[in-house]
Design a protein around this nucleic acid. Sequence first.
DNA 1: TCGTTATTTCGGAAAATCTAGATATGTTTG
DNA 2: CAAACATATCTAGATTTTCCGAAATAACGA
Lengths: 101, 101
Amino acid sequence: MELKMIFKALSNETRVNMLHWLKQPRLHFPAEELEDYDAHLGVCVSDITEKAGLSLSATSDHLSSLQKCGLIEATRVGQWTYYKRNEATIAQLSGLVQNMR
Amino acid sequence: MELKMIFKALSNETRVNMLHWLKQPRLHFPAEELEDYDAHLGVCVSDITEKAGLSLSATSDHLSSLQKCGLIEATRVGQWTYYKRNEATIAQLSGLVQNMR
DNA sequence: TCGTTATTTCGGAAAATCTAGATATGTTTG
DNA sequence: CAAACATATCTAGATTTTCCGAAATAACGA
């Protein structure tokens, strides 16, 4: 886990929002996708794009920077890529920030 | 407290180091300054500059970005500016990151 | 295979940030 | 008051970030 990269990723509001949305997909994304959330797949890029109000490429950039630092992970199913939070990294981060106190 | 600014500040290793040094000044700065630590003043820019191995202006910039987002606070005494951690903000940050889980 | 859909990667423009050096401001001392 | 000192601010160039559209890649279905 690269702490510096994680903080860089979190220094952007859009990316923090994405992380927040992914915490409770049911609250933030269309109900048609419920099966995917239940299957622990996560949320596909199109849905996140619509929610973020950005272009697809910008959204994809944000997602890949979140993924590179380990905050989220991707699962490819057919033509879709689903993203979900990587709770282990997030918990580790939380511990590290605790230790800054 | 501007979370985005805080994360941006923390995405720089030098600034994270500064925060770390200021946590235990005795461990990281000259002993002559002990009175200042004891007086809860913090550490002056010159000492931090030397420790960081940067130019004075670069150090000053880093410190002011840490200050702008509330992670440290400054006390001016005569010609010296002393910086110390703002434990309240750091605790708040810690709580916020906890809540990202 | 061809066309369609989903996503990623690339290239580039505008905006923001970083850093060092020069200059300015405020403080102490002689 | 002048000189020396500590720090802050300004300036400018280099780097980085953010975003978009276009092109590339991947998977699907007819």
